[in-house]
């Protein structure tokens, strides 16, 4: 399967799951609403250029937005994590060259703790922006803080489940 096809399929599945499963769950609590689709951006390959990364992030957010009828809300959050993703990868990269050996960021490519840092920081940024935009009209700092934290925890749990359920092929590109 070509890469383009695989990523497109992944995007479609994640958006459909987000719209028809995760956003359909009756809220357990006002602070917890599961959000998962943005792992598409976390799992984009190392080799993608920064401009393309921004375009892809924008389209990811926008395609979810047409379903939730909030054009621009998820897109804004996605573009932000698309922008800071390369910086965080640069900081966390264990040694020069991992991006040549591995295709996508993963626990194997970065090491467990750096990968966790990568995921947690981008998740916090994404949810922070998302809920700030949502909260513009009730502007309650405590609510915003707890909602971001609560949803981050739920998202991390879901991400953990997804990571151990779907084994992404960690293909070596070269044999260094």
């Amino acid at each position: 399967m070509s890469d383009f096809l695989r990523y497109t399929l992944r995007l479609i599945i994640l958006i459909l799951v987000q719209v028809f499963v995760l956003y359909q769950i009756p809220p357990l609590h006002q602070y917890f609403s599961p959000v998962l689709y943005y792992i598409f951006i976390l799992w984009l390959p190392f080799s993608i250029s920064r401009t393309n990364l921004l375009i892809v992030s924008f389209l990811t957010g926008l395609s979810l937005d047409v379903f939730t009828k909030t054009p621009g809300m998820h897109a804004a959050a996605c573009v932000l994590i698309g922008y800071i993703r390369p910086f965080i990868i640069n900081i966390l990269m264990p040694q020069r060259g991992a991006e040549f050996n591995y295709k996508e960021p993963s626990a194997m490519a970065l090491g467990f703790v750096p990968y966790l840092t990568y995921v947690v920081s981008l998740t916090l940024f994404h949810h922070g922006v998302l809920f700030t935009i949502q909260a513009f009209q009730f502007g309650n700092i405590g609510y915003l803080f707890f909602k971001t934290t609560g949803t981050t925890l739920i998202s991390l749990f879901l991400l953990f489940v997804v990571e151990i359920t779907f084994n992404r092929k960690q293909k070596f590109i070269t044999n260094t």
Binding site: F58, P71, G72, M73, A75, A76, V79, L80
Partner: peptide, 15 residues
């Protein structure tokens, strides 16, 4: 990046 963010917010506000 800034252009895309501004686009998103414009969409949001206009809508």
């Amino acid at each position: 990046f800034l252009i895309l963010e501004i686009t998103s917010f414009l969409l949001l506000i206009r809508y």
